[in-house]
Design a protein around this nucleic acid. Structure first.
Lengths: 157, 157
DNA sequence: GAACTCCTTCAAGTGCACTTGAAGTCAAGG
DNA sequence: CCTTGACTTCAAGTGCACTTGAAGGAGTTC
């Protein structure tokens, strides 16, 4: 193991595009461990950590939480960093998730279409208010869109 | 205004399908105010509150946060509960939001499709890891947002 | 050896949308 | 009058994924 293959937390952070605090957090969570520490107690990572971080961020993009990601990583033999075959297997299951999420949003959109110009908002009758899906779109704190859109929440008058 | 048109917090909660604590929270947030209080300081709501709650929950379903919803409600003349016309105008703008969100998820899905069987997870090359959109999906349930991890700062993986 | 930057730990804070708990009040039935 | 259940307020807690801050150590450059 060549010292040139070892990277400091700052280098990993810069390369992976995450904050150093995130890497320490991931370590606390058991997601990405440094390979070793220096005499002075600094973290040193293998380059492999970059791949692990890429895996985590990609999984997050697909909608997984860190607990699920940890579970996925834990299932890999020896806690190894995902290989192509691992990735293939896991990502195939994520696709279903993504599809389900898309279908949910589409059904909400359809409900909304049915509601535009209706405006009943009836607790009894409104399809938008009475989701035909059991699954709610939001968990606590969950948001769909971000942006400085608050200004145009109201349409033009 | 007939007393028969006034409902307690428990009745409103049961009808609207929300917890009483949620209604108190909405009051703190200025979203749904009780019409008056009894001599004994209990909240009494007009039936209109049901409509306001329906508006809020529908907007949440579409992906708006309470701050945006408050802004939308606050711009209605006299802070009135949304009319059909108001609803029509507002919901039309929300549709764009929903469409954008669906497009985002579809693009992620396409990226994922391109990645299944590839598994490169290259910080440089992986389309999934390198979002072409600013927004990402995160968290359990689904969270849309996240400042970009301006992550093109790196070598190979 | 001083200056400077990067690193360390640990605790606490953030944002959102609520929920829970404690301690007390009100209204109706028996 | 007593009990019961729905209500009141206010403070604090929850979950997630981090971020921030304090206080100090490590490593490099002049």
């Amino acid at each position: 193991m060549d010292a040139r293959d070892l990277l400091t937390i700052g280098q990993i952070a810069a390369r992976a595009g995450v904050a150093t605090s995130t890497l320490r957090y991931y370590e606390d969570e058991g997601l990405v461990l440094p390979a070793l520490r220096t005499d002075g107690n600094r973290r040193l990572y293998h380059r492999e950590a970059l791949r692990r971080i890429a895996f985590i961020r990609s999984a997050q993009r697909v909608g997984l939480g860190l607990a699920e990601i940890r579970a996925a990583l834990a299932q890999l033999p020896d806690g190894r960093t995902p290989t192509v075959a691992d990735w293939s297997r896991l990502s195939a299951t994520w696709r279903n998730r993504l599809d389900a999420q898309i279908r949910l949003l589409e059904s909400i959109r359809d409900d909304l279409d049915g509601c535009i110009g209706c405006g009943c908002l009836s607790l009894d009758r409104c399809r938008l208010y009475n989701p035909h899906d059991a699954a709610a779109v939001r968990g606590s704190g969950a948001r769909y869109l971000e942006g400085d859109t608050s200004a145009d929440v109201l349409g033009t008058d």
